[in-house]
């Protein structure tokens, strides 16, 4: 039997899907409403999953007293109530899920080498479970 712990966090942000490599017409064809020049917003949920052994002293895979402030500082504060295209420097060069994925692994390295963190991004209208697989 394998065990993991998942914590779900929330943030709200605006964005616009637009590629400078494409023409206006192509942008509109590919991204549709998401290309609207003023941007639009979503409520996002981020699921952070930690796998690894249960520490016998605490009964925990990860202590939320460590994980919560870490995710709050690394992810939520950077994205919450922001315009992702302009306010989040990582989006100048990286894709969204890639940005999220790199943060927890970096910050949780001190929790033990066997632990792995996985992040899942979803908006409420899409199933988090499908995207996890």
């Amino acid at each position: 039997m394998r065990i993991s712990l998942t914590r779900r966090y929330h943030f709200a942000a605006s964005h616009r899907l637009h590629s400078p490599a494409l023409s206006m017409a192509e942008n509109e064809r590919i991204y549709g409403k998401c290309n609207s020049p003023y941007g639009h917003g979503h409520n996002y949920a981020v699921e952070v999953t930690i796998t690894g052994p249960i520490d016998p002293d605490t009964g925990m895979i990860a202590n939320l007293r460590d994980l919560d402030p870490f995710v709050q500082g690394e992810v939520i504060e950077a994205f919450d109530y922001k315009y992702l295209n302009e306010d989040v420097p990582e989006f100048q060069a990286a894709k969204f899920t890639g940005v999220l994925r790199s943060s927890p692994q970096r910050g949780l390295s001190g929790c033990g080498s066997k632990r792995r963190a996985k992040t899942v991004l979803n908006t409420p209208e899409s199933s988090p479970y499908e995207k996890r697989r």
């Binding site: 039997m1 394998r2 065990i3 993991s4 712990l5 779900r8 966090y9």
Partner: peptide
């Protein structure tokens, strides 16, 4: 709670998830 859960999975399925 809605925002916290633990998963136990069969060992042989664990790697696929």
């Amino acid at each position: 709670s809605e925002d916290l859960f633990a998963d136990c999975t069969a060992e042989e399925n664990g790697l696929k998830r």
